[in-house]
Nucleic acid binder design. Structure first.
Lengths: 134, 134
DNA sequence: AGAGTAAATAGTAACTGTTATCAGAAAATA
DNA sequence: TATTTTCTGATAACAGTTACTATTTACTCT
């Protein structure tokens, strides 16, 4: 797939604005629905194309957890994610980077450039609702 | 999807044997090709179905990195993965579990049940071949 | 500003990986 | 052996994403 894109278009600007003004880690479909409110005849292909461009440019991150749709994150800075296995919500969390470095990767057979850490469990909201169950 | 399966079948045994005798984290397609050498008319659907059953039974792990095909790992014990971005190879690595615990997840808005750690970079083999470039 | 041209778009078809369906085969049970 | 249940192979359906192409749009150079 070709990800170069030099020109600024209305579509690209709107897509970037949508992603960077939410913290909800939206899917391409959701972004498409939002974008249609501003550009009614925007096409889903354009959304996907521009998402790739924005990723390529380091403006956004793509998060894919298992199967299903990818999610996109307007915060391209280093941070981690917590997935609630009850409600499916995706939470950001920060942690001291130094906790996972050095020794942690001592056994890796190569040179590390990046890593990815995610955790799974039950979020506080779900714990409140049905805390008997967990 | 239904993942219960009580009976041991030739197909299931062969699939499990193939996965557990390689450390190469194969895809469903590769497993299918190997299985056809032993059961020529086995179907791809059967491979997928039995992979789900084996995952459900905790015999194997599914690894999905971004898009593309899932990979399967006959080692269901806790361990981590290193992906070479040059050659695409997937390496296992162990690390002291205690390095990533406690404080690391202090800010998580919920109760953690599991986590996943992967790292990306250039493997030693690729570094040898073209070490000027990295 | 207007013309020329290279790049991006909308709409749609195609593709990929996976899952569902279902008639028939195989295994368990009687 | 007959009956019932589970699993299979073959194939169709599906979801998410990407490719294609004629048309439109943004930028460049007067």
């Amino acid at each position: 797939m070709e990800v170069k894109q030099k020109r600024m278009t209305k579509q690209k600007a709107v897509i970037f604005d949508i992603i960077s003004s939410t913290t909800s880690h939206p899917t391409a479909d959701w972004i498409y629905e939002q974008a249609r409110k501003r550009i009614p005849d925007i096409s889903l292909g354009t959304v996907y194309r521009n998402l790739q461009v924005l990723i390529h440019d380091g403006k956004i991150m793509e998060l894919n957890y298992g199967k299903g749709q990818s999610r996109f994150d307007g915060n391209a800075n280093l941070h981690y994610h917590f997935v609630c296995e009850q409600c499916g919500k995706l939470y950001d969390f920060a942690c001291d980077d130094s906790l996972i470095s050095g020794e942690t990767f001592a056994n890796v057979p190569g040179k590390i450039q990046s890593y990815r850490l995610e955790c799974y469990g039950i979020c506080n909201d779900c714990l409140k609702i049905k805390n008997v169950l967990y």
